[in-house]
Amino acid sequence: MPYNNQPKPDDRSDNVEKLQEMVHNTIENMEAAEETMEFANEKDRADIAAKNERRRDAIEGMRAEIKDEYRAQQEE
């Protein structure tokens, strides 16, 4: 029995909005983590700080991707 599985077409029309939402959520997570640092021990504070640094790096990458996606949408 042959399978006619076809991949879904690449719909990138809402990528900018999705990425912006991801940036917003990541910033909220960073802020919540910063608030918890007040009540954390030294080890947990260091872990939270390291995770927030990774989040900052991720946000930079997402913002660059937003710019790329926006440019791609303008070219269409």
Rank of each mutant, 00 (worst) to 15 (best):
A46E: 09
K8C: 04
E38W: 10
R63G: 00
A64H: 08
P7G: 02
E60V: 10
A40I: 02
A33D: 06
A58S: 08
D10E: 10
R56S: 12
I48D: 03
E21M: 09
V23W: 00
M1H: 14
D68F: 12
K51W: 13
D10A: 06
E75Q: 11
E28N: 14
R45V: 02
N25V: 08
E38C: 05
E38S: 10
P2S: 11
V16S: 03
D10G: 00
E65L: 12
R56L: 05
N41M: 06
F39G: 06
D57G: 11
V16K: 04
P2H: 06
I66S: 01
R12Y: 09
G61Y: 05
N29D: 09
D11F: 07
E28T: 08
N25L: 12
S13V: 04
I27G: 00
M62I: 01
P7Y: 02
Q74L: 14
D44Y: 11
E76D: 12
R63I: 00
Q74D: 09
F39M: 14
A46F: 06
N29A: 13
E38I: 09
E65M: 04
Q74T: 02
H24A: 15
R54K: 11
R45N: 06
T26N: 06
K8V: 11
E53N: 07
N25W: 04
A49Q: 14
R12K: 15
E65Y: 01
E76I: 07
K51Y: 13
M22Q: 12
G61S: 14
A33W: 04
E53V: 02
A46S: 09
A64K: 15
A40G: 00
K67F: 07
N41K: 02
R71C: 07
T26Q: 10
I59L: 01
V23I: 10
I66K: 01
Q20N: 06
E28Q: 14
E21K: 14
R12L: 15
M62W: 05
K43W: 08
N5G: 08
I48Q: 04
P9G: 01
N5I: 14
N5E: 07
N4F: 14
M30I: 01
D11K: 05
N5W: 07
G61T: 03
H24Y: 06
A58L: 12
R63T: 03
Q6N: 09
E75F: 06
E42P: 00
E53C: 03
F39I: 00
A64Y: 02
N15R: 10
D10M: 09
S13H: 08
E34T: 03
N15F: 04
Y70K: 08
E69D: 07
R55N: 13
Y70I: 04
R45F: 00
M30P: 03
Q73R: 13
D11R: 06
D10P: 03
E65T: 05
